[in-house]
Design a protein around this nucleic acid. Structure first.
Length: 872
RNA sequence: GGGGGAUUAGCUCAGUUGGCUAGAGCGUUUGACUGGCAGUCAAAAGGUCAUCGGUUCGAUUCCGAUAUUCUCCA
């Protein structure tokens, strides 16, 4: 069976058992502060488990793209070294939300693996939770008995709390789980050591493929468990591992999921997979990371320097590093692999097909930029090596290596590799110590303590009334205290709310809630999945009261202007640039709007003018908002609504129409576009290969912007006697200025040359040295310097001291012919330092030319005399 | 969110006790050599040393802020 057939077999099986098949959620998570990426199939159902949202279907199955870059068994740095870890993987899963429980879950798992997919029974092992004294839990005998129907007792293993008790986090839903392991060793090996001894022992051929989680408890902040009213099943099966088992391979990377990519890498690098261990690791790393990066970009997450974007950048750079070190790639190559990936997975994940061009461009750009970083690092490292060698050292300090890594992004393993080649070592312990310090700093800065929710009023779902009302009577449904850096604030959840929680690029509302004359400020409103969390500075005195919730109208109105303008901008962009323009991100707040979109070249000035004019035209048409809050998703698409990649949509969506602009959007909008008033583009820039950014302002801000510019112009005109032709006047002024500048220089030159002739007459000969020591009238340090250098060229054996007042301050320059410096041991620097004392100053320079300044103008001639006295 | 760098000629970068006429390579322009191209040689142009403030007799250099940008951590 090939991988496509295997995926289908799973989906068909559970569809046959009454499961609703749903689409994979985006791999990049939005609206969940605790998670950057989907790391398990259950993520998209989190709200159901938490009780924040009712289940739409009680039985669901899917294949979910997941990304794991950290965690107990999956450090990014390990991926590729073995044959079964990945960053991005597919997780096949089936769920029951308060419907079937252990019995059906286990029966069906067995039926699929054994009866449908034909995995031999004697190669399968099941594990069950052994119980835990800490939590006062017995062994999961129920699961054990269910497995006994299919497996002999010795193939059922007791698992520890670590392996067989699943928890969503420190707190929240949890429960025992039961894993299915498969033994892939050959018969001789199996005869030697029984498979049950190797389960959960990190043997690459005795592996867990499916985990069935039985969610029956809720873990509270004090560590205690409470029984859930509704019990759920959550399962996850590693798709790549399943393919390995069914295709009779010993490594995930040997399955058809990865082999096409690896073959392409081998071709590009002119190496063969299987010839060299290190090259093999590199190929696996690249084949794995390619998937993670491509899917992230397709989901709209571009590499950047913080948060999720940074994780993607790090993964990509790791792939480049391995290609660079072990496969000798010196130019972008990962971008050339996207084509193969698309052929492999484009069927199941159409976003790869439609986003291919963007993915390739973004990857190429990132590769180029990192190769530049590497070059810089190599140069810096060469310097360090040269210095170390000159000092007779053979080790580079951990501190230095860390600076290379931390400040210049040069990977530590490359540092030690290059040093090894040059016969040097690096202090790894020192490096790690510095690394720890950095982590400590960041942890302290980000440390946050969250208390348990205190529930006051049970609700099914928060009702958002903010589309229609900016005030409402609300009750606090639950609250909790959050402590960060000694600052306390409170998270409040209301039964209903007029406050818009930050999402879809639009910032959250602020405002206040009021009871009995007491106001509590709401600083911000955030969304945690489906929960709208209001951030308050303090807890109201009487949390159970009925509050009047009031949104900051000014801020909301300005934000609405910008949000609606963003839709108009989107439409104008499509009209002017073409329909390839796709939104890649946006930010909308009360100050301005920012819109990122796919476009492969700079937007020209003419295009920008057209776009801005078009938006303003749409504003003036005063198009009325047509809002429909519950349109079936398919229906909305038929209307031509613009949906975003990487965005998770429900079955029913909100559709926002302004004339011809139709978008799926949850944000708040103006009743008609005339309210936007005016729209001004303030900047256009590139944020990544193939992605441009436009920033713009509207309404009040636009008006202020125009006023500021007009005022400035008026002021400038006033300075120029209210000239009719400002541009010409300024040009004339500039031309005149440069002409005068040249004249001044000419005069100065003449003056200097007059002074020069005077000075040449005053040469004294002292012991064969031609001495000039005079105070002259020159007001420019540069002119004095020029004069000194000219005299040096014209008089041999010169010892020159020039005193002058520059900007009202005394200054002396000493010039000594090079041969005198050498023969007589004279040093201009020493001379000026000594002489400058006469005028309360100091100075320095080189042996042949030095300058000094001072505070006391009356000491100038004394200083000149003093300098002269150095002639021997 | 927190740390560390960087910003000098069109480009890539040097520039240490604060005073070096602010440099190199590449590129550009001009001239010479060659039948032409390529090239070689010679010369020249090109700099608010990111911006603003402070310390100092004096700041590209030290300090602070801002902007832009790179990078690491969370």
């Amino acid at each position: 069976m090939n991988s496509k057939e295997i995926r289908k077999a799973f989906i068909d099986f559970f569809a046959g058992k009454g499961h609703q098949i749903v689409a994979s959620a985006p791999m990049v998570v939005k609206n969940d502060p605790t998670l950057m990426f989907t790391n398990a199939g259950m993520n998209q159902f989190k709200d159901i488990f938490l009780g924040n949202q009712p289940a739409k279907y009680v039985r669901v199955a899917d294949t979910q793209k997941c990304l794991r870059v950290s965690g107990k068994h999956n450090d990014l740095e390990e991926v590729g070294h073995d044959t079964y870890h990945h960053t991005m993987f597919e997780m096949l899963g089936n769920w029951s939300f308060g419907d079937y429980f252990k019995e059906d879950a286990i029966n069906w798992a067995w039926e699929l693996l054994h009866d449908v997919l034909k995995i031999p029974a004697d190669r399968m092992y099941a594990s069950v939770f052994e119980g835990s004294a800490d939590d006062k839990l017995e062994r999961d005998d129920e699961a054990f008995e269910l497995w006994r129907k299919f497996l002999p007792a010795h193939q059922i293993i007791n698992g520890s709390k670590k392996d067989n008790f699943w928890e969503m986090g420190d707190t929240g839903p949890c429960g025992p789980c039961s894993e299915i392991h498969v033994d892939l060793r050959d018969d001789a090996e199996r005869a030697k050591i029984p498979g049950q001894n190797l389960v959960n022992k990190d043997n690459p051929l005795v592996i867990e493929i499916w985990n069935l989680v039985f969610i029956q408890f809720n873990r509270k902040a004090d560590g205690k468990l409470e029984e859930l009213p509704d019990k759920h099943v959550d399962t996850g099966m590693g798709f790549e591992r399943l393919c390995m088992v069914l295709q009779g391979k010993k490594s995930n990377y040997d399955t058809d999921v990865f082999q096409n990519t690896i073959a392409k890498i081998a071709e590009l690098s002119n190496k063969k997979y299987g010839d060299d261990q290190k090259a093999d690791i590199a190929m696996r790393v690249i084949a794995d990371h390619l998937r993670a990066i491509s899917f992230s970009i397709a989901d709209g997450q571009l590499p950047s320097n913080n948060k999720a974007g940074y994780v993607i950048r790090r993964i990509l750079r790791r792939a480049v590093r391995y290609g660079y070190t072990f496969l000798d790639f010196r130019e972008p190559f990962i971008c050339k692999l996207v084509e193969v990936l698309k052929e492999n997975m484009g069927d199941a994940f159409p976003e790869l097909v439609s986003q291919q061009g963007l993915i390739e461009n973004v990857i190429r750009e990132e590769e180029e930029s990192f190769l530049r970083t590497l070059e810089t690092g190599i140069r810096l490292l060469d310097d360090l090596v040269a210095k170390a060698k000159a000092a007779g050292k053979t080790e580079i300090s951990g501190d230095n290596a860390f600076t290379l890594y931390d400040t210049f992004g040069f990977p530590f393993d490359l540092t030690s590799l290059i040093l090894r080649e040059k016969g040097l070592t690096v202090d790894e312990a020192g490096f790690n110590a510095e690394m720890e310090k950095q982590k400590e700093r960041s942890r302290n800065a980000a440390a946050q303590e969250t208390d348990d929710w205190v529930e006051l009023k049970k609700i099914e779902q928060v009702e958002f009334v903010g589309y229609d009302h900016l005030e409402a009577e609300v009750h606090i449904s639950r609250y909790r205290k959050v402590t960060q850096k000694n600052k306390e604030f409170y998270h409040l959840v209301f039964d209903k709310t007029p406050f818009y929680g930050e999402s879809g690029g639009q910032v959250g509302d602020s405002g206040y809630i009021e009871f009995d004359g007491q106001k509590t400020l709401i600083l911000d409103t955030q969304k945690e999945n489906n929960l709208t969390v209001h951030i308050a500075q303090k807890l109201p005195v009487n949390p159970a009261a009925a509050f009047k919730a009031v949104v900051d109208v000014k801020k909301r109105t300005l934000t609405m202007n910008n949000h609606s303008a963003t839709h108009l901008l989107d439409q104008a962009l499509r009209e002017v640039l073409g329909t390839h323009v796709e939104q890649k991100g946006s930010l909308v707040n009360s100050e301005y709007l920012r819109f990122d979109f796919a476009h492969f070249q700079k937007v020209t000035k003419e295009e920008l003018e057209k776009i801005q004019a078009r938006v303003n035209e749409l504003v003036r048409k005063n198009l009325a908002l047509e809002e429909n809050r519950a349109v079936a998703f398919d229906e909305a698409k038929k209307l031509g609504a613009i949906a975003l990649f990487g965005e998770k949509y429900g079955d029913f969506v909100r559709v926002i129409k302004f004339g011809e602009s139709v978008e799926l959007c949850g944000g708040t909008h103006v009743p008609s576009t005339g309210q936007i008033g005016s729209f001004i583009i303030t900047s256009e820039s590139a944020i990544s290969a193939g992605v441009r950014r436009i920033e713009a302002i509207t309404a009040d801000r636009a008006e202020e912007f125009v006023k500021k510019h007009m005022d400035e112009l008026a002021e400038v005109k006033a300075v120029l006697n209210n000239t009719q032709n400002l541009k010409k006047s300024v040009e004339d002024l500039v031309a005149q200025n440069s002409r005068l500048q040249k004249q001044i220089e000419e005069f100065e030159r003449k003056a200097a040359s007059g002074i020069k002739d005077e000075l040449k007459k005053k040469v004294q000969s002292i012991n064969g040295v031609n001495v000039i020591a005079e105070v002259i009238q020159l007001d420019s340090a540069q002119a004095v310097k020029d004069l000194a250098f000219q005299l040096k060229g014209e008089i041999e054996n010169l010892f020159l001291v020039l005193g002058s007042a520059i900007g009202g301050k005394p200054s002396i320059s000493v010039m000594i012919a090079e041969n005198l410096v050498a023969e007589k041991g004279l040093n201009a620097g020493a001379v000026v330092r000594e002489a400058a004392k006469e005028m309360q100053g100091g100075g320095g320079g080189q042996a042949f030319y030095a300058t000094a300044g001072g505070k006391d103008l009356s000491g100038l001639s004394a200083a000149v005399e003093k300098a002269k006295s150095f002639v021997k």
